[in-house]
Amino acid sequence: MNSFMNRRDFLTYQLKGLLWIGVSGIVWPARGLAADIPDIAVATGGTPEAETRAVIEMLGGIGAFVKNGDRVLIKPNMSFAVPPERASNTHPKVVSTLAALCKEAGASRVMILDNPLASEERCLEASGIYDACKPIDEQMVQMVNNSALFQEIDIPGAVTLKKTDVMKDVLKADVFIAAPVAKSHSGAGVSLSMKGMMGLIYNRRIMHMLDLHTAIVDLASVLKPDLTVIDATRVLSTGGPGGPGKVLKKDTVIASRDMVAADAYAVSAFEWYGKRFKPRQVRHIREAHERKLGRMDVENLAVQTVRM
């Protein structure tokens, strides 16, 4: 993935990088470009929009992920008919910023899809995501639960979920971005990018009948986002996934190419139910690490944090 950058992009990147260094006040020793790209990028203290732009920039800019003409699929959480401050859905500004970035990078089509748990209209309205994205493209936010829009796939190497029906859009997308909100989940511990993949399948109920954590890992083995952006502007620390629960105002956005690493970082970075937890205490994160879908050993990864 090193041939992606032309000179202009390189210069722009450098310029923007300088800008962020200026903003953050952190001065990094002069190092090569590749070494500058962290495993996990974290931005705090800004607006949801600025934080989202910052973490993408730290990972090499949106151009590192989206090419001209690409079809992009963004999977946020928007399946609860509750407003953003309840922290059950992804912040609308995080989603719309991602969508705008993809459009800026020349994506031919950006779709923001989820399979809702409540009335589609109410979810679209209450979550604020439809309104936030409307100026970019009126048709980009859609709710999908029509069985005809799903296709059965095999999950090779699955332990428990060996087959499932996934949204055809996932199979057709050139670029796949997970954009979950950071929230607790009374069954899975946390609901982050891996758990969020359940919003892209037709029969997610079966996963509770099987072994939930293992099924999440099975699913994550085939639905692997190119980019994971976790919205921790608000963290639903208790009472998830639907809430109401304790909402922590954290003004943070986390991004990584590795969904397991992003999830693991989010687990370790915030308080859950008033306590601190290690990523390995969430079984699906631990199993994903063991099955080498990604890394949960955050302490061994390069984490770059920007305070705004």
Binding site: E85, S184, H185, S186, T238, V247, K249, Y273, Q281, R283
Partner: peptide, 22 residues
């Protein structure tokens, strides 16, 4: 509205459903 301090609800002490013991 966005940006203001959100609503909070208390949950019982020491209970973290879904997490494994350390």
């Amino acid at each position: 509205p966005y940006g203001q301090m959100p609503t909070t609800v208390d949950t019982p002490e020491g209970f973290a459903p879904g997490f494994d013991e350390l």
